Amino acid sequence: MNAAFKPYLAALIVMGVLDALWLGVIAKDFYREQIGAQMVEQIRWAPAAIFYFAYPAALVALALFPAGQPFSHQVARAALVGLVAYGVYDLTNLATLRHWPVRLALVDTAWGTFASMAAGAVAAWVAQKFN
Results as ranks from 00 to 15, higher is better:
I13D: 02
V126A: 00
V14F: 01
A10W: 11
V75Y: 05
W111T: 00
A85C: 14
V75M: 00
V40D: 14
A119G: 08
D29Y: 10
D29H: 12
N131H: 14
E41N: 14
Y89F: 07
A124V: 07
L91A: 06
W22R: 02
T92Q: 11
F51S: 05
A11N: 08
Q69C: 00
Q42K: 14
M39P: 06
F5C: 04
A85F: 15
V107Q: 09
V126Q: 03
G112T: 10
I26G: 02
T113E: 03
L64Q: 03
I50S: 02
M15Q: 14
F65E: 05
F65I: 10
I43N: 09
E33I: 12
Q38H: 10
F5E: 00
I50P: 08
A57G: 05
N131E: 11
I35E: 02
A123W: 15
K6S: 12
I50N: 04
G36I: 06
P66S: 11
L21D: 04
P101K: 08
S72I: 10
I43T: 13
W100H: 03
Q38Y: 14
L91T: 04
L9F: 10
I50C: 04
L80G: 00
N2Y: 14
A105S: 04
Q34P: 03
N131Q: 12
L23W: 07
G112W: 06
T96R: 03
A11F: 11
I26N: 02
L97Q: 04
V88S: 09
Y89P: 05
W45C: 09
L97M: 06
F51G: 07
F114T: 14
L83E: 00
A67P: 01
A121P: 06
L97E: 04
L62R: 03
A67K: 11
V81D: 00
F114S: 07
A48K: 00
F65W: 15
W125Y: 08
L62Q: 00
A49F: 10
P70E: 12
R77Y: 09
F51N: 05
L94E: 06
F53I: 15
G16A: 03
Y8N: 04
V40R: 13
W100Q: 02
